[in-house]
């Protein structure tokens, strides 16, 4: 694979005495689908927030899309996309207005916005509902739109924070098709999820337990290592000792 697009070294975040993310060291290459797993409170969201520039790390170093997290925050912002847990679109705006708005805040100019809106509406087959307010659209459509909008400005990396919450399995599967497509075009995907079947779709996985990296490998290698059939079992083996006692 190509050169690393995300590289972190002992990235740490403390809130008071509580270490939320403990010395996270990762290297992710271009075009990779990187799965970030962990129980609630394992530090996933905090890690994403540091990598997207929403939170300042307590210690450690990191570079994202070739920019240093501390000194090149603006450069990082221009080269990443972000989709949060709740799809983060505006229900009271129409599909077209949503596209235009997000394209705008990601720094596209007028010409590019027009061009991209048209392309996107066509490729997502949303032309008919382009001027409908988002509130009346099904969840699956919103999810697709949210993803497309997050990568509209052609970032190097897109961060997806539990992008498939509350969506049925068929829609989830279709969503992953979109992720694969984007990855084939060279986009790096950093995705957190609760669903173990989704974990199997990733190129590489990082499982977090209590702020620390408990395992970091390809899904097959992980299953082989623990001698189990599914990611589910891997996850339970890793997470349980700390959670139950």
């Amino acid at each position: 694979m190509s050169e690393p697009v995300i590289h972190t070294d002992k990235l740490t975040k403390r809130f008071g005495d509580f270490v939320v993310v403990d010395a996270l060291s990762l290297t992710i290459s271009g075009g990779e689908i990187f799965g970030f797993l962990g129980a609630n409170g394992a530090g996933k969201t905090t890690a994403i927030r540091m990598l997207t520039g929403l939170l300042i790390p307590t210690s450690g170093t990191a570079s994202v899309a070739g920019f240093d997290l501390y000194t090149g925050a603006e450069g990082v912002k221009l080269n990443i996309g972000y989709m949060s847990q709740r799809f983060s679109l505006y229900d009271d705006l129409t599909v077209r207005e949503n596209i235009r708005f997000f394209a705008g805040i990601y720094g596209l100019n007028n010409q590019a916005i027009k061009e991209k809106s048209r392309q996107l509406l066509e490729s997502l087959k949303l032309l008919e509902v382009a001027d409908t307010r988002l509130a009346s659209l099904p969840l699956g459509w919103k999810q697709k739109l949210a993803f497309s909008v997050a990568i509209l400005h052609e970032p190097k990396i897109v961060f997806l924070d539990e992008p498939t919450g509350g969506v049925d399995p068929v829609t989830r599967r279709r969503f992953w098709d979109m992720i694969y497509e984007a990855s084939e075009r060279g986009l790096t995907i950093f995705v957190t999820t609760h669903y173990m079947d989704e974990a199997e779709y990733c190129d590489r996985l990082c499982i977090m337990v209590d702020g620390k990296v408990a395992a970091l490998d390809r899904p097959e290698a992980m299953k082989r290592h623990f001698g189990v059939e599914s990611m589910n079992e891997v996850f339970i083996q890793l997470a349980r000792p700390n959670k139950m006692e």
Binding site: R49, T52, G53, L54, E74, K77, L78, I80, Y82, M83, S84, Q85, R86, F87, S88, L89, Y90, D91, F102, I105, Y106, G107, A150
Partner: peptide, 13 residues
């Protein structure tokens, strides 16, 4: 509440 604030902050705004 809608999670859009995070997106705004991640954006170039």
């Amino acid at each position: 509440e809608s999670g859009t604030m995070e997106v705004l902050l991640v954006s170039s705004l």
